[in-house]
Design a protein around this nucleic acid. Sequence first.
DNA 1: ATACTAAGTATATAAAAGTATACTAATGGA
DNA 2: TCCATTAGTATACTTTTATATACTTAGTAT
Lengths: 109, 109
Amino acid sequence: MKYDFTMDQLCPATYAFQVIGGKWNLPILAILSENECIRYNELKRRLTGITGTALTNCLKELIDYGIVHREQYNEVPPRVEYSLTQSGKELVPLIESMVAWGQKNIVTR
Amino acid sequence: MKYDFTMDQLCPATYAFQVIGGKWNLPILAILSENECIRYNELKRRLTGITGTALTNCLKELIDYGIVHREQYNEVPPRVEYSLTQSGKELVPLIESMVAWGQKNIVTR
DNA sequence: ATACTAAGTATATAAAAGTATACTAATGGA
DNA sequence: TCCATTAGTATACTTTTATATACTTAGTAT
């Protein structure tokens, strides 16, 4: 391994895991990767079991990480659309190799 | 994205993130990837800040996932050596692409 | 007037993950 | 005899992460 991330607090791999980790981040990224853009409540409906609080927090985090873009239209009732940014889109093939590894190596305990 | 991991409890990508997630799993994999095999206390010394309890738990988990192999020699004082299994080794290039993504896309908040 | 909508916020609570501390075994060395 | 060593276990505790519930805003439809 070329990069030593053992001791480094700002290690890029740890960072990537922070971005995609957590209970809902990966499912959110999956849905966003399949839609050019999607509204808050539609996202919530597809993420069976998520609460509004959780969805809001996750989206905020992903926006702060520069993975997700938020577009707000000042209408009533409000319309807010979420989409992947460029760096979010670059994460997708990476997640796909995770899927491939998982499919090959999963161990049911 | 070809695989739908939104609703699936046993989704391969979620599984992969479980395996590498947690505070110490990634640093442990990094050290193991750089050593053919390594003893418990040497691993502990290199993982600055980890407690024995935490290291033991993580190693157990990684062994259960089939990522790490444990070889015990019945000597006194005891000697136990840890190494990556084949599926652990297959995880390394994947982590390396995480590093690459992180280096390119990291956002300091 | 009242109810309904979307996209949240605020607050409290529960569950999960991680940490600290003390303890164990068998042997070798001072 | 007493201390050090390795690779842990057992227990209690703290911190972090996730959830449940009630409330908000402004306009539109009944």
